[in-house]
Design a protein around this nucleic acid. Structure first.
Lengths: 182, 182
DNA sequence: CTTACCATGTAAGGCGTTACATGATTCA
DNA sequence: TGAATCATGTAACGCCTTACATGGTAAG
């Protein structure tokens, strides 16, 4: 019931490309995937245990390093499970922008307050756009090294294009609000 | 703990502009707000009871109609509560696109599968864009009738601009994937 | 007369965040 | 030696959807 959980697929997807620790998976979530998917430790570590229990991933202790690392790999079953999910139709694409909510009700507090929210949004997007532009540069250089990079690039381009559009919209919205209607 | 609930503010925001029944609130969620916020009956009705209990909204039975309607209105306290929230900084803007997730891991299943997901996405967006363009037309006509309409329009413009960008991106992504790398 | 829509709600239960807990290692 | 980062995990609990449950009314 409720929402179907996707974290298993996300982890398997990351493991399909390379072996990772839970900590590294979290890092991927906070950088590469951040723009369209997020997850916390509280969902990652339990999911990893679950995947091992179900035979979709294996865990080995890293004896080579001094740290207490647990390295996860995808199994053949895990890969099949991931592939099957990839063929299924997309279940849900969801956008929840509190900024838009506050703007929608903006008449209650007036233009100044609304503009302030837009400016904050703008700054956040500008910063994230820089990150994506950098990621794009790196990916374009290594596009022929790995067939997977083409797919990564597509999602990065999505982010870059939409963020640029957001910034354009910010300018227009600010103008519309600043204009007192004469 | 967990996510801070926003449904109270959304409902108060809607009530700040007009009296509504729970059913009508759900309709607003499924049309106007759908593009940046969603909610089900299972969250709306309990929230309405809660708002009445806290004195932020009032409920009256509609004796005029034959239907068993419960009409909700915002109170002064409710309006203050809403206004205070509007001044607070935005907590979270979140995008969760399963389509992008499947594309990111697209290397596992190859270009054809990925293109198929993009095409499905494209069709969905085209349809929703039509709805927004219609909403825009109506709003532009009535922009001077109500100061709130300006704020509604801003959020509609956000949707139109981003959806158009999505469609552009679809074309580019399809091209990149169809291109077998010669 | 039957289908679609209006209208209100509850129960179960999954999902996932936040906060807490702990400790090692690297670097300045 | 102290701060930042690496590294793993659990507990509590709030949020929200899905599914269930019920019945009236309008339209064809």
């Amino acid at each position: 019931m409720a929402n179907e959980k996707k974290i298993d697929y996300v982890i398997l997807g990351l493991l399909s490309h390379e072996e990772l620790t839970g900590y590294e998976i979290k890092k991927r979530m906070d950088t590469t995937l951040k723009y369209f998917w997020g997850a916390s430790y509280g969902s990652i570590y339990p999911a990893l245990n679950d995947l091992v229990d179900r035979g979709l991933a294996t865990r080995i202790e890293d004896t080579g390093s001094k740290r207490n690392k647990l390295i996860y790999s995808i199994t053949n079953d895990g890969r099949s499970y991931l592939k099957k999910w990839l063929t299924l139709p997309v279940d849900k694409d969801e956008l929840r922008y509190e900024t838009l909510l506050k703007l929608f009700f903006g008449n209650e507090q007036g233009a100044e307050q609304a503009i302030s929210h837009i400016e904050t949004f703008e700054k956040k997007i500008e910063k994230e756009l820089q990150y994506l532009l950098n990621a794009e540069k790196i990916l374009r250089k290594s596009i022929d090294e790995d067939t997977a990079h083409k797919y990564y690039l597509i999602t990065v381009e999505f982010g870059i294009k939409t963020y640029r559009t957001y910034l354009e919209w910010c300018k227009e919205a600010e103008k519309l609000l600043a204009d007192k209607g004469e």
